[in-house]
Write a protein that binds this DNA or RNA. Sequence first.
DNA 1: TTCCATGTTCCGCA
DNA 2: TTGCGGAACATGGA
Length: 263
Amino acid sequence: MPELPDVQLFKKYFDATSLGKKITAIDECDSRLLQGISGKKLQQRLTGKSFTATRRHGKYLFARLDENGFLVLHFGMTGFLRAFRKEEKAPDHVGLLVRFGADDFHLAVVSKRRLGRIAVTGSVEEFVEKQELGPDALALCRDEDSFRKRLDGSRGTVKGWLMNQKKIAGIGNIYSDEILFFAGLHPKRNISDLDKGDKQTLAGKTRHVLETAIDKKAGEEGWPESWLLPRRKEGKSCPRCGGKIRRIKIAGRGAYYCPEHQH
DNA sequence: TTCCATGTTCCGCA
DNA sequence: TTGCGGAACATGGA
């Protein structure tokens, strides 16, 4: 679930459910998700405070703690947020449970596979620098020139570049496939083969895919039938040209594409 | 039982 | 130096 568009929606969800309320307790905290801080320390850091705002960079969500730093959330492959009331059953696989006093409800960070991460940082910029994250994908694709320049400074395959968080932060396996599908580029196509027009197209399609995904999901509509997403299975027919969708392995991950129109 | 899964990190190799 | 493939991490679903 969680690539940039998903995390953007988690941000919205967090804002709607968890801002401006006093944190009264941290009830559960899975130490395996914690990075650079102990459960006890995190508890001390959060209790009595409140979240005042959120930010997002790539796949990371940052929740500001009053005037003192940020809680950092990364959702791995299966993480998400769930707000629920006291009388409701807690979701399974809770990695972090924040309890608010005001109306007696909880915010759970759920992580089935526990591949996510929970940390604390003094500032977003500091964290981004430390993790060596590239510019946020949504911001970068809205600035075609910068996007192109960034591509120019890299080698290797387009898919590899799109998924490299140090080059551009926020795109993963699913959305990189989707972007390449729209751009008509084979996932193994080399960056050095791309001309200026190809790069502009790539920037434009990145923007289209990310913005549309955020829009569609926000409205809880299903995936557009014209997208590759609902057809991520070998042998399905391409919604654009009818070609047979193929799956290849890239760095251990399944990459889906249409051999008819992606070259 | 085997394969696959929206993420990151670490290692060895080109 | 950069990029790539593979394995590892942890867990569940088809």
